[in-house]
Design a protein around this nucleic acid. Sequence first.
DNA 1: CCAGTTTTA
Length: 586
Amino acid sequence: MSVRAGGWALQLIIFRYSIRFEDVTSEKTKIKFLTDGLLLREMLIDPLLKRYSVVMVDEAHERSISSDILLSLLKKVLRARPDLRVVVSSATLDAEKFLDFFAPDEGGTLTKKEEYGTIVSIEGRTHPVDIFYTSSPTNNYIEKAVDTAMSIHTNEADGDILLFVTGREEIDDTIDMIADHIADLPPGSKTLQPLPLYAGLPIDQQMYVFQQAGENVRKLIVATNIAEASVTIDGIIYVIDTGYVKLRAYDPAVGIERLNVVPISKASATQRAGRAGRTRPGKCYRLYTEGAFEALEPATFPEIQRSNLAPVVLQLMNLGIQNLIRFDYLSNPPSALIIRALDLLFSLGAVDVHGRLTKPLGIRMAELPLEPMLARTLLNAPSFGCFSEMLSISAMMTLQGTAFVTHDGNQKLLEKARRRFAVKEGDHITLYNVYQAFTNPAVGKQSSQWCRENSLNYKALLKAVSVRKQLRNYLDRMGIQEDALASSDVTKVGGIDMAERVQRCLTTGFFAQAARMKSDGSFVTIGGETVLWAHPSSIFFHRKADWVIYHEIQETKGKVYIRDLTTVEMDWLTEYAPEYYKVKQK
DNA sequence: CCAGTTTTA
């Protein structure tokens, strides 16, 4: 780990880190690097953070939910612990906003800014980057990006290019177009090697971007926002910034998440440009006008104002925050988001009529590192005799659709592999079959070779194995163990086969996300107000179904897709969620 | 009916 800190004698200090599955800290640790999410978890056990004298929150300008919440809680902690030092690092554009946020409440002894905080500006370590704008707006930024890349390649000195686009589809299109252009290059000219980079790309395929290009080869990395802050690549001299990003927006009125392509913020544009100046002076080509840049928002719209807040609300309540509307947020989330979250938590039994966390259910749900609906399902599993199965399914759900991958871009092979594991009940049990086969010493042997043969993502499945272990540990500590009914073969137990027990159990957590397939293959929700489509990765993209519950809903390009579906019977909905469906029918 | 921005516990 390389850390530079002015002239301090830091080499004496022992650095250690802690992430979800890796804690290498000890009593000797002086400085600990950890994620904001983990620190929030630590606050459950140590609310005043007594183990720390200084807390530094990095990249606060990104305005992620967990860093926003962390800042709010740190402000609270400071009232009880004036000795604590809080350092917030952020793009200079909004430093003032953060300082204002930490202003003590009325009646305190510290009233002047300089008494409670200071803004310190630190010169960057990067080289200068020349910024170029277009003289007029572009209507097709992908075409423009391809032209710009080709022109850099033919006219500019050596150095790799980083191009920002919004998603996988644009990455694929761009790379195809570049490939066409390369074919037109005069013989003997330098090669341009386009490389994709996005989070959903399997790790081994991501690694190519870090490899040094061969002689006479210039890398062109076509990336999503992952290359803006999460991943840093050396040797980038040229950045092409299309000026757009894909952002989540949650609509509390219908409970649907949307993925919208929106203009980036000034902070993002600055960050992207900075990626060109890490090794030597670089150039950044913004595919928009200077006027358009000036009109950009200073910082990204806070995530807390555009997300499903059920998980956050549950966690805050578990930290003892009673009034979620009045909580001291850095930016207040719309109250509709909070109400929607409380509604859901109430229907799941995590919150009572007084708006308080229930014991033990609500507390247990908050402690599990799963979204509320899945947490509730897993906690119900022992009573359905499918504890072991739901542990595996829950772990597989955290992979968010990355279990299957194409190895040579061969989609047909992937679909064939999927069919090998598919069952008529739907996607959850299909994923369960994948997990079972992967961990079976006689079948998958947890081997990468077997995964390649079955279009499966080896690293992702290994992650599922460790998530499952972690979940089991959590449940062990709650005193919830393997159910008496458990048996991993799909035989009749208690008159109901394993698949049906899983289906019923899923209904107890996902009853609020039910839909029915119509004859044309589309789905309608209970009220019939929204038309939904099975996501192409679902086995119901082709097959017929009647009632289903779904794990996720998301609108993309004007169409609402549901992911991870399992068939249920209509009667189960009213059987397991009578209150919910009574209210809805009015 | 044809497809997931990014994180995290």
